[in-house]
Computed example of a mutant assay.
Amino acid sequence: MKNLRMIFPMWQGGNLTAYKQGAELLAMLAPEAGKETTTVTVPVHIPRTDSSVESGITGRNNLKAELEAADSLIRENTPDSICVLGGDCLVDLAPFAWLSEQYQDGFGILWLDTHPDVMTPSQYPNAHAHVLGALMGNGDEMLTRHVNKPVPSSKIMIAGIHSPNAYEHEFLEKNKINQVSPEEMMKGTDQLKEWIEKEKITHLAIHFDLDILDPNKFTSLNFNNPYAKPSDFEGIAQGKLELEDVINWILEASSLTKTVGLGITEYLPWDAIRLKDALSKIPILTE
């Protein structure tokens, strides 16, 4: 079984350059790949301090090039499974779209995230909040063109979600997407097992957005950005789970069906990022 380990330091989907450094550090922390694994790094535009909104999407042209590069690397390697080390949440678009195309009606997505990521440019310009909607075939053509086999709503479970905004709530209800609250996740995995069995999911991709975690107990999150103002996060749902809760769900899912995709996203180790930036200014280290 061919596995592709994809390091994808995309940052403009979330319009935060620190996502790039977070992905690079995550790649160092993740276990070394096995013999059947090929490792690739998706080229990402050199960060700027700002990104303009282009036809409704922040950094559209750069994101378009990066998604096309990811798609090309996947099709060159024709993997059976893909592990993605990101980067903002948009990194999972091309890999999960490929897996949906390969495994067809047996494919499902477990979206471990405080947010559903089903918005479009009409609601929000940062494309990391569009990715799951695009995998369903909804949203901007720049994203949906990568999805040859849209994932039916019944084959999606969003776990860890709470307090969606009005648009998200309407979209989730209209499409009857399976939802599990953080409190329900803490009680056990019965809903996960029932969903996998009911939908006959033989191959699963798991999206793990670290912002599902409680920012008071796991600090490497955007909500602990030392440069942010308190008002920056007003009205935005924050995670409630502990790391062990989420890992238990991933392990249980992997025991119930074949996990062929895993995306880990939005890792922001602020102290390490700040230290790296500071060290880069010391002449003797850079000569």
Rank of each mutant, 00 (worst) to 15 (best):
M1C: 07
N3H: 11
G13M: 08
N15W: 04
A18C: 02
K20Y: 13
Q21P: 00
L25M: 14
L26H: 09
M28E: 15
L29E: 15
A30T: 09
P31M: 05
E32P: 00
A33D: 10
T41L: 05
V42T: 12
P47W: 10
R48W: 06
S51H: 05
V53C: 06
S55T: 05
G56M: 06
G56V: 07
L63E: 03
E66L: 03
L67I: 11
A69E: 13
A70P: 00
L73D: 03
I74R: 13
I74K: 12
D88P: 07
L90Q: 02
L93K: 06
P95D: 01
F96I: 05
D105I: 03
G106C: 01
L112T: 01
V118G: 06
M119Q: 15
S122W: 09
S122G: 15
H128G: 04
V131W: 04
V131M: 09
G133Y: 04
G137N: 08
D140I: 06
E141F: 07
M142T: 15
T144F: 10
H146S: 05
K149M: 07
V151R: 06
S153M: 11
K155A: 15
K155Q: 15
S163A: 10
S163K: 09
Y167A: 05
Y167W: 12
E168R: 04
L172K: 10
N175W: 14
N175R: 14
S181P: 03
P182R: 09
E184M: 03
W195R: 10
I196N: 08
K198R: 15
E199H: 07
F208G: 01
L210A: 10
I212L: 13
I212C: 12
N216E: 13
K217L: 12
N222T: 03
F223H: 02
Y227N: 14
P230L: 03
G235Q: 04
Q238Y: 00
L241I: 08
E242A: 09
E244F: 11
I247S: 06
A253N: 03
T259D: 03
L262P: 01
T265K: 02
E266G: 03
L268V: 07
D271L: 12
L275P: 00
D277M: 14
A278H: 12
L279A: 08
P283Y: 05
L285R: 08
E287W: 13
